[in-house]
């Protein structure tokens, strides 16, 4: 990924506190448009916390305090004039555990567009549902049972349903928090292929514990440790020629 692509998200000196506990110690990084960037690091290193800063999901946690600035297209996401609802429509999220609504497959996808008034007629909504499911590679598997509950699908299908649900509101960035950790290898490889296709249209930030996955899917990789950003660079460079001792130790499996 060339660094000439425009900056989509720019974070500087982001600190997160849970009560008296500081979880992030001043993170600064840029995320470029239409790239896949992966965050790796041992458990508790703050990578998920930082991911959740990008669409302000940390707001939903009591006692969580975020300082520093995060710019989305040059605009601070914490500025009072910006509604968090608008931000989350722009920056979608896929969670670690597939969490479809206990409703039909159709309603799972249609919920977001209906919420934001993206479809005026039923036909428009049908189109959005179909195209979202197609882009998530799920259409052929579910087109005959759109009225069945989304919770009746297999784990991998559920996760793709969640991806389809988040792209149905046409976000610009998709945050993925360990999207494959609950899936088997076959479902994982399908999701990885999907990520590869989605980056044509979306900027994707993915948190993963699986270093092979980071190497396979991402253009750039950021290594976090104990709330600090240790190293960030092109995935190839980080994995083959890490600049930091701690990165090398982690990648070679000495800890983590």
């Amino acid at each position: 990924m060339s660094n000439s692509a425009p900056v989509k998200i720019s974070a500087s000196d982001v600190k997160v506190f849970y009560g008296d506990n500081q979880a992030l110690h001043g993170i600064s990084m840029d995320v470029y448009q239409h790239e896949v960037i992966s965050f790796i690091g041992p458990s508790g290193c703050g990578k998920s916390t930082f991911l959740r800063c990008m669409n302000r999901m940390n707001d939903t946690i009591d006692q969580c305090r975020v300082t520093g600035s995060i710019l989305l297209d040059g605009r601070d996401i914490h500025e009072p004039a910006l509604d968090v609802v608008q931000l989350r429509a722009q920056v979608g999220m896929v969670f670690q555990k597939p969490n479809p609504f206990p409703k039909s497959i159709y309603e799972n996808i249609a919920y977001g567009p209906k919420l934001h008034g993206l479809a005026e007629r039923k036909a428009d909504l049908d189109d959005i549902v179909e195209s979202s499911l197609r882009r998530a590679g799920l259409w052929n598997e579910v087109k005959d049972r759109l009225d069945q509950p989304g919770t009746g699908l297999s784990g991998g299908q559920q996760q793709r349903l969640c991806i389809a649900r988040s792209i149905a509101v046409s976000p610009e960035v998709i945050l993925m928090d360990e999207p494959c950790s609950a899936l088997d290898p076959i479902a994982t490889s399908i999701i990885e292929e999907l990520i590869d296709e989605l980056k044509q249209n979306f900027t994707i930030v993915i948190v993963t514990h699986n270093m092979q996955q980071a190497a396979r899917v991402s253009d750039r990789t950021a290594f976090f440790h104990l709330g600090n950003l240790i190293e960030i660079g092109n995935t190839n460079d980080v994995f083959t020629n890490p600049q930091q001792k701690r990165t090398e130790d982690y990648i070679t499996g000495r800890y983590g």
Partner: peptide, 18 residues
Amino acid sequence: IPPSIRQAALGLGASKMQ
């Protein structure tokens, strides 16, 4: 009620009330 349902809705841009 599992918090994942709340997060899913919030992540899509639903307000807390929604």
